[in-house]
Computed example of a mutant assay.
Amino acid sequence: MKTQGSAVWQGGLKDGKGAISTKSGALASYPYGFAARFECKSGTNPEELIGAAHAGCFTMALSLILGEAHLTADQMETTAEVTLDKEGDGYAITAVHLTLTAKIPGIDQAQFEELAGQAKAGCPVSKLLKAHITMDAQLVG
């Protein structure tokens, strides 16, 4: 399976503006920019989107692992807090902290923590955050 997200940007870093879209249409030219990223203004930012993707992927992975253990969650809620820190002359994502609350009949805390750990290790987004990235770049016009 392959899917995609895209971004358009116009202008400089602080005065510019961008729009993020997803192939599914869940985001369609949704605004993002410097103020949304660094000044808590309206719009989204890459770290927020990574957090949403990681929370969603992890929760789905845990649902799979629970099913393999013949368990089904009544409800799970995951938050992925993404930390962007200044490093040298730039910025880096330095941490992602997952917080999970769940209602799962028939499981104790120890088993819950074990299965959640398996989901964290197996989640494709968790793996991506450690993966090598490739790129092609072409200047046009």
Rank of each mutant, 00 (worst) to 15 (best):
E114T: 05
K130I: 11
Q111K: 15
V125E: 04
Q118G: 10
Q109K: 14
G106F: 09
I104D: 03
I133T: 13
G106A: 09
K127I: 00
I107N: 08
K130T: 13
P124F: 05
I104Y: 08
E113P: 05
A110Y: 07
A119R: 03
A102G: 14
C123G: 01
K120H: 13
Q109N: 04
K130P: 02
A131Y: 08
H132I: 14
D108M: 04
Q109F: 03
K103L: 02
C123V: 07
G117A: 11
I107M: 06
L128G: 08
Q111N: 10
V125Y: 01
C123H: 00
K127Q: 13
I107C: 11
I107D: 07
V125Q: 08
E113Q: 10
Q109E: 08
K127L: 03
I133V: 15
E114I: 01
A119N: 01
E114V: 04
D108G: 01
C123T: 02
K120F: 09
F112N: 10
K130D: 07
A119I: 06
I104Q: 07
G117L: 05
E113G: 10
Q111R: 09
E114Y: 00
D108W: 12
A131N: 05
I107V: 14
G122F: 08
E113S: 11
H132A: 14
A121Y: 13
E113C: 10
L128K: 12
Q111T: 14
P105M: 03
L128Y: 02
G106T: 04
G106H: 03
Q111S: 00
A116I: 10
H132D: 15
H132P: 13
P124L: 08
L129D: 05
G106K: 06
I107P: 02
L129N: 08
E113H: 06
P124Q: 00
A121T: 15
G122I: 10
P105F: 12
I104E: 07
A119L: 07
E114C: 06
E113Y: 01
G106Q: 14
A116Q: 02
K120Q: 15
A121W: 11
C123P: 00
K103S: 15
S126R: 08
K127S: 10
L115K: 07
A102D: 04
K103G: 13
L129I: 03
L129V: 11
A110E: 14
A110P: 07
E114W: 00
